[in-house]
């Protein structure tokens, strides 16, 4: 079984740094995107199994990226997990309605996050 591929999207370099380390450590293949446009491009090109998606980004926001992914037939099996500092009930509901499997609030625990990811991908 080939390595599962995860796309990590965030505009904060340190968050990207920690997530990249965490996923690699747990045996996943990691691609990182530092803004919305990069994320869309990489999602289409790499067809990741799972996308860890930030919402507040200066160019394209995470909701729009999720919506786009869910509309692509080629990406219909891609799992989306939101990682966001937006902690409002309405944001959570919106994220799940757009088809995300999980909506995780920042700051998150790397220990529980990796458990969730493992469950989603096996």
């Amino acid at each position: 079984m080939p390595e599962k591929k995860i796309l990590v999207v965030d505009d904060d370099p340190y968050i990207l740094m920690s997530l990249e380390f965490l996923m690699q450590k747990n045996g996943y293949s990691v691609i990182v995107a530092r803004n919305g446009r990069e994320a869309l491009h990489l999602a289409e090109q790499e067809k990741p199994d799972l996308v860890l998606l930030d919402i507040m980004m200066p160019d394209v926001d995470g909701f729009a990226i999720c919506e786009y992914i869910k509309q692509q037939p080629a990406l219909k099996d891609t799992i989306v997990v939101f990682l966001s500092a937006k902690t409002r009930e309405s944001d959570l509901r919106k994220g799940l309605e757009l088809g995300a499997a999980k909506y995780v609030f920042k700051p998150f625990s790397t220990r529980s996050l990796i458990k969730e990811i493992n469950q989603l991908l096996h």
Binding site: M17, L22, R88, K106, P107, F108, T110, R111
Partner: peptide, 25 residues
């Protein structure tokens, strides 16, 4: 207030994630 907490959450996220990783590895 919401924006402020949002802005505070971002550095906190990095700090927590990075220290957990150093600690756990």
């Amino acid at each position: 207030l919401y924006t402020v907490t949002h802005e505070l959450r971002t550095p906190l996220t990095s700090i927590r994630a990075l220290t957990e990783l150093v600690h756990d590895n």
